[in-house]
Amino acid sequence: MNKDIVSIKGINDGLLITLSTTEEWQVITTELAARLDEQSGFFAGAKITVDLGERPVPKYELSSLRALLERRGLALLVVQSGSATTLESANALDLRAVALNQPLRNAEGEPSFDPDEDGTLGLMIRRTLRSGRRVHSRGHVVIVGDVNPGAEVVASGDIVVWGKLRGTVHAGAEGDESAVVCALDMSPSQLRIAAHIVTSPKDKRRQVRPEMACVRHNQIVVEAWEA
């Protein structure tokens, strides 16, 4: 048994499986299968969160991981990752993608971006979020597409929607009142920034234009987006 390759532990409502970020994928999946089979039946029905760290996992690998778990009666629900590729794969498979917000650093531990710009890692999604999808990021979230009614985006930072925003969004979810929400067409069913909440009036004659929501004088205001 090798705890460095695969670690399994119980969390609130299921299991957290953490997989090595350096070992070969084939070795990892074999080890995982062996570990689960050892405890055969013990985990059945559990909801699984997989932490893949910084490893970029393509869609087909993630999909075979899901199948491996499914064959053992385990439902893969959440993927935690610091890799954009992995998050994109999780999104494409309709799994809940949780971005681990690692500061951008190169191998020497130096910030790999321009030190004059205090950038933060974010999650970029190039598709429409449909009903039932939930996206969560410790950084910013950029969506190139629509956020449909019934979809939800939660970010510790800002949320930018390059499309129609009609679902629920929560920016500054950890309490940052300076967070903003921008959208080309702003009519969220609910919009939150930090602890403030507003809903959109159902006004059909509303003028469609890019808008930005932010907190001013202790309330959410929406104004024309002129960045």
């Binding site: 494409a92 309709d94 449909r130 009903s131 039932g132 999808r133 009614p149 019934g150």
Partner: peptide, 11 residues
């Protein structure tokens, strides 16, 4: 709303 979900699942 549910149809929208299905489109997502189909994708």
């Amino acid at each position: 709303r549910d149809a929208d979900r299905i489109v997502g699942l189909l994708e």
